[in-house]
Write a protein that binds this DNA or RNA. Structure first.
Lengths: 158, 158
DNA sequence: GCTGAAACTGAGCTGCT
DNA sequence: AGCAGCTCAGTTTCAGC
């Protein structure tokens, strides 16, 4: 859903909601100079237009005993559409894979993987890479610190 | 806030909320076999305990005219605490940086950067890398496809 | 068209059992 | 934990700009 025409008020509303989706409309309205009802109407439109694609709870990984994060770059044997699509489907179905990007450069895919422990990660590498003939090479980096974690979009400047 | 003691009901609730934080308690209760009030009480506890760290709106980048994503690996000149901390602060303050991880391996940091266009990305590389004496090397991969984008935590198995 | 005000609906909260 | 009532945010209606 590309290029909905958004004015400055919409951007201000989005900016607040991507920080905290539970912010009440009255608070946003007070900031941007709109009534609560007007803000809610805009939010509803933004949702229906797909500008707000979803609203999610972010869970502290440590609290649920998932404490390890890995950045994995993957190089496929051949860049064939069916091979790439098969890999896409595999990572989409794998709950350990938080994020997957198809990228230019020497690597084909960049993965962000979370696991309970090293054993779980080894199980992941086996099912994802070693048992896949089409994976030529993969490189793992262990995340020591999640310096910044977000899905926020830069709405101003950028 | 590590290792709150969560039972299967809590995990089921979290599982729903990290997909859609607007799911009403009654719907979750019907699924897990709890009253709406009980679900709401648990959600409140999960928030207060920090298990649910935040609730955010996910915005479609294309809808706001931000259409380019990059994966950037960064190698610092020296691994000194003050140098690393300074870089941390810089990326935390930069709205173009969605995610930043401090990692093991040849690279020191992995960044996920979103920009409106190539010009904006060039401006980012200048202010972040070229004007920073401590950055030895950086490698950019252009994201061609966001195969999977999420912050969800694998609550089962994993 | 989009706004603000007010009435309506519905979900979250709280006290009680 | 469940139930019932209360509270408050979101929704809809309406009139006005």
């Amino acid at each position: 859903m590309p290029a909905a025409d958004l004015d400055q008020l919409d951007l201000a509303i989005l900016s607040r909601l991507q920080e905290d989706s539970r912010t009440i409309a009255e608070s946003i309205g007070a900031q941007v100079g709109l009534s609560a009802a007007a803000v809610q109407r805009r939010i509803k439109r933004l949702r229906e237009a797909g500008v707000i694609s979803r609203e999610v709870a972010v869970i502290d990984p440590k609290a649920v005993g998932v404490d390890m994060t890995f950045v994995v770059s993957v190089e496929m044997e051949r860049e064939r559409i069916d091979v790439l699509d098969a890999f896409r489907k595999q990572v989409l179905a794998d709950p350990a894979v938080q994020q997957c990007y198809y990228v230019t450069g020497s690597a084909d895919f960049m993965l962000l993987v979370t696991c309970r422990d090293m054993t779980a990660f080894e199980a992941f590498t086996r099912r994802t890479f070693f048992e896949n003939e089409e994976v030529r090479h993969f490189t793992t980096s262990v995340v020591m610190d999640r310096v910044k974690v977000g899905l926020s979009i830069p709405l101003t400047g950028g």
